[in-house]
Amino acid sequence: MGRVTEIKGKPQEGEWSTGFCDCCADCSSCCMTCWCPCVTFGRVAEIVDQGSSSCCAAGVAYMLSLFTVCGSVFLSCKYRTKMRKQYNIKGSECGDFLKPFFCERCALTQAYRELTKRGFDVPLGWQGNVDRHNAGVGMGAPVVQGGMMR
């Protein structure tokens, strides 16, 4: 579930790895989203944007959008659509708008859980995940103890 399968060279659409209302699956992100949705949004946006936006900048944009009519819903919709297309998850732009419209916090926690299920440590951000992924890869030539001897 949630994985993309391939038939005749074409990737097929997968499902979300968790349900829309599965908030109890991760109580910590659910509580954080309940009290500070700007933090959840910022973390999700940074990873979906692959580091081109920062968690803080996205979180502030989200917080400021709360003062406009449906501004935060449009931001959530934009990133939900971007994430769905990035990971080839079934859905539509209409659903990407309606889910945040009716329960924005459920939509944010679902996106957070999806990134976690896909192997991201979301609080680390994009660069932290890249560094963690590359931790086992050595750079440069190996160091030889005692130098070269004949």
Rank of each mutant, 00 (worst) to 15 (best):
C55G: 07
G128Y: 05
E6P: 06
G146M: 01
Q86V: 01
F97E: 05
R150H: 13
C77T: 14
G95M: 09
M83L: 15
N129G: 08
V143H: 12
G91F: 01
C94I: 13
S53M: 09
N88D: 08
T33D: 09
G136C: 08
F67M: 11
S54P: 01
F97H: 01
K117G: 04
K8T: 13
I89W: 03
V122W: 11
C21G: 12
D26H: 07
G71A: 11
C23G: 15
P123L: 04
E104G: 11
G140C: 05
V44D: 01
V130Q: 15
G119Q: 02
C24T: 05
R43N: 07
Q110L: 07
S65P: 02
A107N: 04
R105P: 02
S29H: 02
F97K: 03
G42A: 03
C21L: 15
A58K: 00
R43Q: 15
F41C: 06
F20S: 07
Q86D: 12
E46W: 03
R150D: 12
C38H: 07
I89L: 08
A141W: 08
G71F: 03
F74S: 00
Q127E: 15
F67P: 07
L66P: 03
F41T: 07
K85P: 04
C27V: 14
G91A: 02
V73R: 00
F20Y: 10
T81H: 15
T116Y: 13
T18N: 10
R43C: 05
C55M: 12
G9Q: 11
G71L: 02
I89Q: 02
I47H: 00
A107Q: 01
A141T: 08
Q127R: 12
C36R: 08
C30P: 01
M83K: 03
Y79H: 07
C77R: 10
M63Y: 14
C70T: 11
N134E: 15
G125L: 02
A45H: 01
L124F: 02
F41L: 04
T33F: 03
E13V: 12
P11Y: 05
E6R: 09
C103Y: 09
V137G: 06
C94N: 10
C30L: 06
C31K: 10
R43L: 14
D121K: 14
G128R: 01
G14F: 07
G95E: 05
S54M: 01
T33R: 08
R105S: 06
T116W: 10
C34Y: 09
C23T: 09
F120C: 03
G136H: 13
R150G: 12
